[in-house]
Structure formats: structure tokens, C-alpha cells
């Protein structure tokens, strides 16, 4: 089995895995009860999925076409860098706009903290 075929298989597998992870995260996006929990699914797992896919693509092009793409690497890095921040901001904005937590949530720590702060100030 030549390196070519091997790399191809690796690449495609990575891509497939990535896609499946993405799909799972999408399932989470649909199924989970509230915005906070869904944000886990949306940010964490889909980031991972994308990473796998991009990595697969990266590998594919290195070996198949001999093309070392800085842009892909940069893309991977960028998604890695920003996905958590966006998730964070979305959740925060959700909280600030008083989006209800799902009933199954254990408790809301921040609320108590904020209340305490308010009383203080």
C-alpha cells in the first residue's frame, strides 16, 4: 500500500469522522433543552468536527497534490481561537437578555452572585 493510498484513506477517514462529529453536534443542537446546553453542542463538538475535516483536507492535499496550505492551517487555528469566544459571548448575551434556563438545570450560580453584588453596590 503506497503512501499515497494510505494518506488518502487517512484523510478521508478524518473527514468522515469530522462530519459525523458535526452531525452529532447538530443532533445536540436540535435535541438539547435550552440555549446554554445547546451552546455546548454547537461550539465544542462542531469545532472538533470541523477541525477533523480540515485536518483531513490538509492531509489530503499535502500528499495528493503536494500542496502545503498555510491558509488551511491558519483556518484551523482561527476556528480554534474564536469558536469558544463566540460561544461565550452568545451565552452571556443570552443570559443578559434573560433567556430562561431549562427546568432540568441544577441551579443558577450567577444569579445569586449578581444579586449579592447588587445588594452590595
Amino acid at each position: 500500500m503506497s503512501i499515497n493510498v494510505l494518506s488518502e484513506i487517512v484523510a478521508v477517514t478524518l473527514i468522515l469522522i469530522g462530519c459525523i462529529i458535526s452531525f452529532l453536534s447538530a443532533v445536540g443542537l436540535v435535541r438539547l433543552p435550552d440555549v446554554y446546553t445547546r451552546s455546548h453542542a454547537a461550539s465544542k463538538s462542531s469545532t472538533l468536527g470541523v477541525l477533523c475535516t480540515l485536518l483531513g483536507t490538509f492531509v489530503f492535499f499535502i500528499f495528493q497534490e503536494g500542496y502545503f496550505s498555510i491558509k488551511l492551517l491558519l483556518g484551523i487555528f482561527f476556528v480554534f481561537l474564536t469558536a469558544p469566544v463566540s460561544a461565550h459571548l452568545i451565552c452571556r448575551s443570552a443570559y443578559r437578555t434573560d433567556v430562561e434556563l431549562a427546568e432540568v438545570s441544577a441551579r443558577d450560580d450567577l444569579k445569586e452572585e449578581l444579586k449579592r453584588l447588587q445588594e452590595k453596590g
Partner: peptide, 9 residues
Amino acid sequence: DAIGINLIA
């Protein structure tokens, strides 16, 4: 956001 991420893939 999720659509965007998926589109990348």
C-alpha cells in the same frame, strides 16, 4: 454560527 462552521467543512 453553527451553519457557518458546517459550511467550512
